[in-house]
């Protein structure tokens, strides 16, 4: 394989999962329709044919059962990688994730590891029906014992899925499903950053904007428009939602004095709220304006014909940037 290849994220994830299955015989995939079908998003396409139906396992249709049995397999040394079919379908497994998976190592006082990855296609922009477009990451970021990451590019997806699988902690791997098919360059030789590092995607001087997953491309779009109006925006891709890598965020705020945090999820008690609180605690004197959140509204994800009104777009980012600059 050449050093870099242009791939969509779904294919990059497929390549990353394939590499993980090759590297470690203890890695196995579990989920609904991930076998012959290759998953509803085709992320696992071809993997069952290559690695067999014991390592790439179609399960009964029961999310709690998938996570609960994966916990049992991890207890015996396996490294299960679970696919939850859609964001809104993770809730039947909520108890096994939060009361069991997250606490299992602590309950054993360190004498048990839970190297489980739960892949969650999440977010809107795909025009789907109810329960298929949600951003439930804050529920899990609130739970000690879990790690949460979300790639925004095919390159990050390829590397981060492998790093998540190598982690000895449970990792919720949020895949921005609206970014599954746009292509990007994947460097198969080396990773750009560690699993839990935020990354400055574009440097700027006037306002810092932070987001994750599909929001990063919206932030870049907003930055491009702002530049034509003479505003220089620094864009940071969180990559890791738990823990959050505050170093690059605080460094950026020291420079710009202004921060806008954007997310598809409802804003109340969200990842963005946490960042706003922490930046206020740690960089109060650097701030020239309050930290502003741009979020989905605090309503259930609306019927898809209304989703463009619900989801923050570049204009809503720019509106917040303008408010920040007006302080």
């Amino acid at each position: 394989m050449s050093e870099t290849t242009v791939l969509p994220m779904a294919r990059a994830l497929n390549a990353g999962l394939r590499q993980a299955l090759i590297d470690d015989p203890k890695v196995l995939l579990m989920g609904e329709d991930i076998g012959p079908l290759g998953g509803v998003f085709r992320v696992t396409e071809g993997l069952q044919a290559e690695f067999g139906d014991l390592r790439v396992r179609d399960t009964p249709l029961a999310e709690s059962g998938i996570v609960g049995t994966a916990i049992g397999m991890a207890m015996r040394g396996y490294r299960p990688v679970i696919e939850i079919q859609f964001d809104g379908f993770i809730f039947p497994a909520f108890d096994q994730i939060t009361t069991q998976l997250a606490k299992m190592r602590n309950r054993h006082e360190g004498q048990m590891t839970m190297p489980i990855v739960i892949r969650v296609p999440y977010g809107g922009h795909i025009g789907a029906i109810e329960h298929h477009q949600e951003s439930p990451e804050a529920y899990f970021a609130h739970t000690p014992g879990l790690r949460l990451v979300s790639p925004s590019t095919p390159n990050d997806a390829y590397w981060m899925i492998q790093e998540a699988i190598r982690s000895n902690d449970p990792v919720l791997f949020f895949e921005p499903k609206s970014r599954y098919w746009p292509k990007g360059e994947v460097n198969f030789e080396s990773s750009a950053a560690g699993l839990h590092q935020a990354r400055v995607v574009q440097t700027g001087d006037d306002v810092t904007v932070v987001g994750h997953g599909a929001m990063v491309s919206v932030l870049l779009q907003a930055a491009k428009v702002a530049a034509t109006e003479g505003t220089s925006i620094e864009v940071i891709d969180l990559r890791s939602l738990s823990p959050i890598d505050y170093g690059p965020i605080l460094a950026s705020v020291q420079k710009t004095g202004r921060l806008v945090v954007a997310q598809e999820a409802p804003g109340s008690v969200s990842i963005g709220s946490e960042i706003a609180a922490t930046v206020a605690e740690r960089a109060f004197y650097a701030l020239q304006a309050p930290v502003l959140r741009v979020s989905g509204f605090d309503v259930p994800f609306p019927p898809a014909k209304l989703e463009t009104l619900y989801l923050p777009d570049a204009d809503r980012i720019l509106e917040a940037v303008d408010r920040s600059l007006a302080y």
Partner: peptide
């Protein structure tokens, strides 16, 4: 469920 996963392993 943990027991069942363990038995599957």
């Amino acid at each position: 469920l943990h027991a069942t996963g363990y038995a599957m392993a």
